[in-house]
Design a protein around this nucleic acid. Structure first.
Lengths: 218, 218, 218, 218
DNA sequence: CATGAATGAGCATTCATTCAT
DNA sequence: GATGAATGAATGCTCATTCAT
C-alpha cells in the first residue's frame, strides 16, 4: 500500500490529494484493472478503500470522472519524456544509430509501464468504449508522439539506416513489436520465466533488421 | 441483417438455431462489441433482437453463457485451418520459403478476421476478465497453434531461412507484427485509407528481414 | 416410485390419470411439501416429473388447481371412515368405552396420516393462505367430523365416561393431544426413536384421565 | 401503526432502528403473516412501508435476512422468562402445585403470544422450510425450555403430583394442550366467541387430571 | 471533509401461462 | 395428449448518485 502511494503522488502531481482520496484511487485502479470499469461498482471501491460511498462522489462527480482521473495523468506522463528529453537527444546526435534510440526508448518506457501496469491495462481496456478517452489518446499519443516519431524516422531514413517505406508504416511496426513484447511479457504471460535482457535484445534486433531491409548485412 | 445470418449459421454449425435465437446472437454481438459485455444489458439485447427478455434466458441460462456461445465457436473456427490445411501444405513443400507461408497465413486469417471482426473484438476485450475464456483460448490458440507454429519455425530454421533464436520469440514477433497490423487496420483506424496490398507486403517484408537476421541480404 | 403410484390411484379414484399426470402429481407433492407451494416453480415440477412445462397446464389450468387436485382428495379420504364406519360402530355399541373408541380412531387415522404425510403437510401449511382450502376444510372436517364427534361426546357424557364440559372443548383437547402427538412424532422429530405403542398408550391415557375429571380413579 | 412501534422497539432492543427500518419490519410482518414468506414480494413490502425497494436491501442483505431479523428476537424473547423467573419461582416453592405453575406459565406466555401473534404465525409457518430457523428453534426452545421443563416435571413427579411416565411425554402433552388451545383460539377461530377464562381453566384441569393419572381423585 | 441512509431506475433472472406444432 | 418455444410481468437485488447531518 505504501508502495502505491508514492506512485499516486508522483502521477497526480497537480492536485493535493487527501488521504481518503488516495485510497479511493488505489482501490479503483485495483478493481478496474481486475474486473473492468463497468463491472466494478462504486460501493465495492468504497468498501475496499475503507471510505463511505458518498466520499467517492464528493471528489469525483461521477464514476466516469473517477476513471478519467486515473487514466488521464498516465497518458500525460507517458508521453512527457518523448517530448522533452529523447527527441532532443536524438537531434543532438546522442543516438547515432536507430538501434541506440530504440533501446533507450524501450527501456525507458518499459520502466514506466511496469510501474503503471494496472493503470495502463485500464486505459487499453476502456479506450474503445469512451470517446473522451479516445480523444485524449489521440491528443497525447497521436499528436505528441506520432509527429515526433515520424520526424525521427525520416531523420534516420535520410541517414540510410531505415528502409524507404512510409514513416507511418515504420511507426506501426516498431510499436507493434515493442508493445507486442510488453503485452506478452506483462499481461499475457507475466507468470512465465522471462530472460528480459535477451528478449529485449532480440526484439530490438528484429526491429532493426526488419527496418534495415535486404541490405541489413552491411 | 440477412447479411449476418449466413455467418451465424456458418459459425454455429453444430446446433440448430431458431429464428429468434439467431436474432439474439446477432444483437448480442453488436451490443457487446460496441459497449462491452458488462455495459450491455440483456433487456437492450432483447429489444434490439425484437424478442422478449425471457426468450434470451430460455436459450442461454445466463448472460455469460450467451457470451460464451458467441465467442467459443469463433476460436474454434479460427484455429481450424491452421491445424488441417496449412501445416500439411508446408510440410508437403507447398511453401518452400517462410515468406510464402507467412503471406498465405496472413491473407487467409485476415479474411476470417474481417468477417468476424465484432466477435473477435469481443473476444479480445473480454478475455482478461473471464477465466473460462482464458482457458478456451489457451486450449485453442496456446496448444493448437503454438505447438504447430513452433515446429514450422524449427523446420525453417533448419533450412537456414530463420535466424537461430528461440522459436517462442519468433512466434511472439510474428504475431505481434501481424496482429499489430490487423488491429491498427481494422480496430484503431478503420476509417483511414489503407493500401492493404502494400501494407501487407511491407509487414511481411518487415517480418522476413527481422527474422532473417544480419545475413538477410544474401 | 411404484410405491407412490398405487397411493395416487387410491386417492384419486374418481378420475383416470395418464402416466404423465401421475408423475406430475408425485413430483408436485414432493416439491410442495419440501419447499412450500409458492416456493415451488412449475418448471421444477415439470423437470422432476420428466414432462414438458406445458403438459402440467394441459391437465391443471393453473398452479393452484394442481394444489387443489392434490389436497382435496386427501381431505375427503381422511373424513370418509369417520362418517361411515366408526360412528356406526360406536352407536352399535362396538366401543363401550371412550378409550376403545379413541384407540381405534387414533390407530386408524394414524395409518392414513403416515401414508399421506407429505400431502397432509402441504394441506396444513397452505390452509392459512388459500380461502378455497379453508372452505373445503370447514366442509369436511368442520362439519362431517365435528358434528359427528360432538354427538359421540354427548353420548359418552350421558354414560358418565366424560366430564361435563362443553363438547367443543372436549373436541379441541382430544384433537390437540392426538395431533400434538402425530405432529411431534412425524413432523418435528421423525428421526428420533419412538416407542410408538407406549406413546400411543400414554397419550390415550392422558386424554382419558383428562376427560374423566377428578373421579377418574373410580 | 403507532400501536406497533413500541412492540418493535421492545423486541429489537439490541439495535438502533431507523424510522424507515421500523416501517419495513412492520410491513414485512404484516405481509409475511398474511400471505407467507415466499408469496410476499419485497416490492410489496416496500410499497406498504412507504420506502424505496432499495432501502430494504440497505438494511437487510437478502429477503431471508429480513425474515430472520423478524423472527429471531421473538424466539429469544419468548424463552427469556422461562429461564429467569419462572424456574426460580418453582424451585423456591412459589408454586407448590403443578396447577399453579401451569396456570402461571399459560397466562404469562399467552400475553406474549397475543402481542406477537403475527410474528409467531410467521415463525410457525416458515420453520419447516428454513434450516436456519430450525436451528435457532432447537437452540432456544429445544435446549433452554426443554431441559428446564424436564427438571420441573421430575421435581413434581418426586412430589407425587405427576404420574410416572417419561418426562418428555409429559412435555409433549402439556405443550400440545396449551398450544392446541392457543392455536385454536387465536389462529384457527379467532373470530369465534371465546370464554377465555373458562377455556383456560378447562385446559389446565384437563392437563392436570391427565397427568395425575388414575388416582387424580385424591 | 466525510458520512451513510435513502433513492428509484435498472439489472439479470425466473415465473406461470399460452399456443402453434 | 404432449411438446417446448415464446412471452412479459414480476422477482430479488444492485446500481450510481443525492443529501441531510
Amino acid at each position: 500500500m505504501t508502495d502505491h502511494e508514492f506512485k499516486i503522488d508522483e502521477l497526480m502531481d497537480g492536485e493535493e490529494l487527501t488521504d481518503k482520496q488516495k485510497k479511493i484511487i488505489i482501490s479503483a485502479i485495483e478493481s478496474f484493472s481486475e474486473k473492468g470499469f463497468s463491472a466494478t461498482s462504486t460501493s465495492e471501491i468504497a468498501k475496499k478503500a475503507g471510505v463511505a460511498e458518498g466520499t467517492i462522489f464528493r471528489h469525483y462527480k461521477t464514476k466516469k470522472d473517477l476513471l478519467l482521473a486515473i487514466v488521464a495523468p498516465v497518458m500525460a506522463k507517458f508521453v512527457a519524456p518523448f517530448i522533452i528529453k529523447d527527441l532532443k537527444k536524438v537531434l543532438d546526435q546522442d543516438y547515432e544509430h536507430v538501434e541506440d534510440f530504440l533501446k533507450a526508448m524501450l527501456e525507458n518506457r518499459r520502466d514506466f509501464l511496469i510501474k503503471n501496469l494496472p493503470t495502463v491495462k485500464i486505459l487499453v481496456q476502456e479506450i474503445p468504449f469512451h470517446p473522451e478517452l479516445k480523444e485524449l489518446f489521440k491528443e497525447h499519443i497521436g499528436l505528441q508522439i506520432y509527429e515526433r516519431f515520424i520526424k525521427l524516422v525520416e531523420y534516420y531514413q535520410a541517414k540510410g539506416q531505415i528502409i524507404e517505406i512510409p514513416a507511418y508504416s515504420v511507426f506501426r511496426m516498431v510499436f507493434s513489436s515493442i508493445f507486442g513484447y510488453l503485452i506478452a511479457r506483462y499481461m499475457i504471460l507475466p507468470e512465465a520465466e522471462w530472460d528480459d535482457e535477451a528478449e529485449t535484445e532480440r526484439t530490438i534486433q528484429f526491429i532493426m533488421h526488419g527496418l534495415a531491409g535486404p541490405n541489413s548485412g552491411n
